[in-house]
């Protein structure tokens, strides 16, 4: 059911045209951050206002929307954004990665491989990968213009000097098509290899920072590294305690006051699918026969 007081997908048409133009320019220059006139949304900054605006500009009435927060469909952020578009766009929603045509995500890429025809919309807090190294926008813009990315390698090198390895574990910088260094949003670096050569369209929206950028399908995305310290997509060295998966990204959950903990898939749809298929983990409830 649609709230008739609002335009389809909440935003007015002129705002959507502005966002759509920014998205198309972002796709034409993969990895480049396109400025856009981000609007106030009926949710606070940090809750995905950028992603919501990109999703609103892309949605059609026929779409099936999935929203995840750190891989989970059932957390507050995901539930509220899903309800927002159910009310304002009347679109169907799903928790299944395979069924969705538009997936808005906060800080994860689903475990199930994406396909052509899908759009993955990332919520981005700080779109500028160089921002913590150089606070001035005029300077970082110049650095992108001149392809001056030495500073980023110095940061990774300092990681190695201090920790013996590249300790950056999320928002790991990537280079897109050999040109722009891009912040893939705070996804774990475990997800970085899925950014490149992906059949789906990947769009990034940063509401507070007023930037949109994009990675077209089948685009080369390389995580920055050194010859002697190659990029490693790391995860917790455990199996999921609910579905037994050894290839998925895991969340650590404290379960008592005695230091007890469990590891579970961060992608709830992936984990539930495996459990439904009969896979069991270390802490799965006993079978009821």
């Amino acid at each position: 059911m649609t709230d008739q007081a609002y335009n389809f997908a909440y935003l007015d048409e002129q705002t959507k045209r502005m966002i759509r133009r920014a998205i198309l320019k972002g796709l034409a220059v993969p990895g480049y951050q396109v400025p856009f006139a981000s609007r106030e949304m009926p949710m606070p900054y940090g809750w995905g206002t950028g992603g919501v605006q990109v999703t609103a500009a892309c949605l059609t009435p026929e779409d099936v929307l999935k929203v995840i927060d750190q891989g989970a469909d059932d957390t507050t952020n995901a539930v509220s954004i899903r309800k927002f578009f159910q009310r304002t766009a009347g679109v169907r929603v799903t928790e299944s990665t395979g069924e969705a045509s538009v997936i808005q995500t906060r800080h994860r890429i689903p475990e199930a491989p994406l396909r052509e025809g899908q759009i993955l919309v990332y919520q981005v807090p700080i779109p500028e990968p160089l921002r913590f190294l150089e606070p001035r926008e005029a300077e970082t813009r110049k650095m992108h213009e001149l392809e001056e990315y030495g500073l980023m390698h110095v940061k990774l090198y300092e990681d190695i000097a201090r920790h013996g390895e590249i300790a950056t574990s999320y928002a790991y910088p990537v280079k897109v098509e050999g040109r722009y260094v891009m912040d893939p949003s705070p996804i774990p670096k475990f997800d970085n290899p899925k950014l490149g050569d992906c059949p789906a369209i990947q769009l990034f929206g940063a509401g507070r920072e007023q930037r949109i950028y994009a990675v077209p399908p089948y685009t080369q995305v390389v995580s920055l590294d050194f010859d002697d310290h190659p990029f490693v997509a790391s995860k917790a060295p455990h199996d999921c305690d609910l579905c037994g998966a050894d290839e998925s990204y895991l969340d650590e959950v404290i379960i008592d006051d005695a230091g007890g903990r469990m590891f579970v898939c961060s992608d709830t749809d992936f984990c539930a699918g495996r459990q439904a298929a009969g896979h069991r983990g270390r802490l799965s409830p006993a079978e009821v026969v």
Binding site: F8, K16, R20, L27, L59, P216, P217
Partner: peptide, 19 residues
């Protein structure tokens, strides 16, 4: 029906530019 027709048209253009 501007919102719906523009949305469908944009998706076609989005796919065209992406691919």
């Amino acid at each position: 029906h501007p919102p719906e027709q523009a949305a469908r048209a944009f998706r076609a253009v989005l796919e065209a530019v992406s691919r």
